[in-house]
């Protein structure tokens, strides 16, 4: 499908009101010489769900991976990413502390080849949590938060590889939550799942938003409309529009957004 040429400089980006959990300033990502995102400046509000939408290859996942430095060693990232008054896009930064605070869930469920219990405890133990009661508590809490507890509470010591795709993905969410992060990044978490599992994940996200700031990449516009408070539309590495989800879906101001939302391309 050919895409119309849009004026990439014509964009509308708002700064959401209230406390900002994470903010990027002129972030550019390069794969070698090829530039993947251009001057991305977005502010993500606390305890809200922000969605990043756009066609595949629009740079939304690439951008998301900058936010907890998962692009290290893969791509070059310039610009500032402010988290708790620290520019986390600097060499000196302790990425391990950062990733404990900003967790990530990936497109394909990737539970460890360990038991369900170990999946959640493994990283905690490595981070120095030794008390078995604390560990057990965290297992239950995080599995409950990910709406998986009832399904797996009787088989915590079986292999996580035996879970269905949707269960495995919720386990991955639980695994991230168990670290008690601030922010949760989700990279198309439901794209590999069936509709029922997707619905469960979405329900989970709405629950989680009470305690976590969530940034979710999705190519599913309905999903963005259903779960998110704010939506950013990526096109060819540029953010064309960023505002309240209700606004962007009902009254898109930029031509590219309008065309994408009405299904003209992507």
């Amino acid at each position: 499908m050919t895409q119309p040429d849009y004026n990439l400089d014509q964009h509308q980006i708002i700064v959401p009101p209230g406390e900002i959990a994470l903010e990027t300033k002129d972030v550019n990502v390069f794969y070698g010489k090829k530039q993947a995102t251009f001057d991305t400046s977005l502010a993500f509000p606390r305890f809200k769900i922000s969605a990043l939408i756009g066609a595949s290859g629009s740079g939304k996942s690439t951008f998301l991976r900058c936010l907890n430095r998962m692009n290290d060693g893969v791509a070059t990232v310039t610009g500032a990413i402010m988290y708790r008054d620290v520019n986390i896009n600097q060499k000196k930064l302790n990425v391990y502390v950062l990733r404990k605070n900003i967790g990530m869930v990936f497109q394909h469920p990737n539970p460890f080849a360990k038991t369900i219990r170990e999946n959640i405890q493994f990283a905690l133990k490595k981070h120095g949590v030794k008390d078995q009661t604390v560990l057990d508590q965290r297992v239950e809490q995080s599995l409950r938060a990910a709406a998986l507890w009832d399904e797996v509470k009787d088989k915590l010591d079986t292999s996580a590889l035996e879970l269905s795709g949707g269960q495995a993905q919720r386990l991955c969410i639980a695994r991230s939550i168990a670290m008690q992060p601030d922010i949760l990044l989700l990279d198309e978490p439901a794209s590999a799942l069936d509709p029922i599992s997707t619905a469960k994940i979405e329900e989970t996200l709405l629950e989680l938003k009470q305690k976590y700031t969530i940034i979710i990449v999705t190519h599913n516009m309905q999903q963005a409309a259903r779960v998110s408070d704010y939506t950013a539309f990526f096109h060819l590495g540029h953010v064309m529009e960023y505002k309240k989800t209700a606004d962007i879906f009902t009254r898109p101001q930029v031509k590219a957004t309008e065309d994408y939302i009405s299904g003209n391309f992507g």
């Binding site: 907890n68 998962m70 391990y96 990733r99 990530m104 394909h108 990283a123 991230s176």
Partner: peptide
């Protein structure tokens, strides 16, 4: 993906490799 899972939990690269 297995490496990314380990790294995204704030584990060091060597812990991810070994564990």
């Amino acid at each position: 993906l297995q490496r990314e899972a380990g790294l995204s939990l704030g584990l060091s690269k060597s812990k991810t490799i070994v564990g």
